[in-house]
């Protein structure tokens, strides 16, 4: 069976095994109704939500085991942070998230493309150069405030802007695309902070 359903930010998807709703002497339908009632009345915190479900639904002498998986999409407002492994395969999903982020921030599409590209260039540099043959994390955060987007990309390795015929396009491109680019490196890693207006008309 196949179905699709759009999960809007703030909604909660609950997946569970039958042990959660099955109870000796009661039908599954009764169990499901009870679950719906408990779930609807539960609060915002997702851990507390799980605890409450388990406390209310599962009795001590239950014979079956119970597994719960709770998924809640969060709105990309405020100053969210993504932390991913610095690997090429994360680039496309990162772009997808950034696109959504920028769209939800009402960024002008052309300027959003520029920011997307600049982020792609920095992340590519981190992936290629920050950790050598080792693995390591890549962190990216976006803050849109007063019509300006500030992107911070951080790693725990070290890299320098590359040069050469085929590798030297990244940094000049980033500087062309963004209004300001600050790069600071230290023993704990490298931080790139970039700014760019996101409303049409503030184009540099």
């Amino acid at each position: 069976m196949e179905a699709s359903f759009r999960l809007v930010p703030g909604s909660t998807l609950l997946l569970f095994t039958d042990g959660l709703v099955e109870k000796r002497g009661a039908s599954i339908d009764e169990g499901l109704e009870r679950l719906a009632a408990v779930a609807t009345g539960s609060g915002q915190d997702i851990e507390a939500f799980c605890d409450q479900l388990l406390c209310s639904m599962v009795e001590d002498d239950t014979a079956d085991d119970v597994a719960l998986l709770v998924i809640r999409p969060v709105p990309l407002t405020g100053r969210p942070l993504l932390r991913v492994p610095a690997e090429p395969r994360v680039l496309a999903p990162l772009r997808q998230t950034l696109r959504r982020w920028l769209r939800e921030s009402d960024a002008d599409p052309q300027l959003a493309n520029d920011i997307l590209l600049a982020c792609g260039e920095v992340c590519t540099n981190v992936i290629q150069h920050a950790y050598g043959a080792n693995e390591g994390p890549l962190e990216i955060s976006l803050d849109v405030r007063d019509g300006t987007a500030e992107v911070t990309i951080r790693d725990q390795g070290c890299w320098r802007p590359s040069s050469g015929v085929h590798g030297g396009h990244g940094l000049p491109l980033i500087q062309e695309l963004m209004e300001s680019v600050e790069l600071s490196g230290g023993p704990d890693g490298t931080v790139v902070r970039m700014r760019r207006g996101v409303s049409d008309g503030s184009d540099s």
């Binding site: 772009r95 997307l116 590209l117 792609g120 260039e121 590519t124 015929v165 085929h166 590798g167 396009h169 990244g170 491109l173």
Partner: peptide
């Protein structure tokens, strides 16, 4: 729909 300097390097090569 998207091409960055990795794509530019590809074209040059």
């Amino acid at each position: 729909t998207y091409l960055d300097s990795a794509g530019v390097a590809l074209l040059l090569r």
